[in-house]
Design a protein around this nucleic acid. Structure first.
Lengths: 116, 116
DNA sequence: AAGGAATATTCCTGTAAAGGAATATTTGTG
DNA sequence: CACAAATATTCCTTTACAGGAATATTCCTT
């Protein structure tokens, strides 16, 4: 009966829900960067930068291109599209259902009298 | 020089980045519900449901209305708007900057030759 | 081939947070 | 006023994960 909802992937959110990773994402909006530059600009140690980048990559938020010694990371569009789609499916319902407390209160009333 | 970016609140994301809390949010799309119903429908124990609801409320994702014995929780629009705005500020940049690896590679080249 | 960048990985430690169980609190009802 | 229902809170335990430090790996340069 119930349609198959988009079902936002929570692990994508948890990957973004870490301050330094969010800073990395914000930084990469300006364009692709190497690990070293990311670490420098954000005042992170290289190992922690690498670890965060790995998490973000594993969740498909970033993609990496090896260029000689350097690894260049850049944003991927997909997860943001997914987030956007999920939000859109919300907006539709927002106007309708969020605020009909009254209907629900009447419903509660009914159940109360029903079960006695 | 740099504009003040939206700056998505990571704590909002972390509140959503928990499976049971996400399930609560999805459930409440259908309309407001009491703690008991939320716990029932999701197969959660009441205390855990209350705890998750508190987290969601503390982050402004839900709001609560006390109705006699019951507490009715419902979604708030604000955080979703915030998320939406943040995403929008992304979309704009997506097309332009995400993919100009070439420019960045040339830039790297230059720096390499520069510093010698 | 050797040394040095740039990056990834491993190990350790501390901390935050989620679930379980029990209990407190509030409110309605007989 | 006593009891029961609905919800919140506390305490405990376990687990996930972020940072620090050290080390491994890869690739360039000479």
């Amino acid at each position: 009966m119930s349609g198959n909802l988009p079902g936002m992937d929570v692990t994508t959110l948890s990957a973004l829900a870490e301050p330094n990773r969010m800073r990395i994402v914000e930084l990469l909006r300006e364009g692709p960067l190497t690990v070293g530059e990311i670490a420098d600009r954000l005042g992170l140690r290289q190992p922690q930068a690498s670890k965060h980048l790995k998490v973000l990559s594993d969740h498909g938020i970033l993609e990496m291109k090896a260029e000689a010694n350097r690894r260049i990371y850049k944003l991927r569009a997909a997860p943001f599209q997914e987030l956007n789609d999920w939000l859109k499916s919300f907006q539709r319902i927002m106007e309708d259902r969020f605020d009909n407390l009254d209907a629900y209160l009447r419903e509660l009333q009914m159940k109360n009298h029903e079960e006695e």
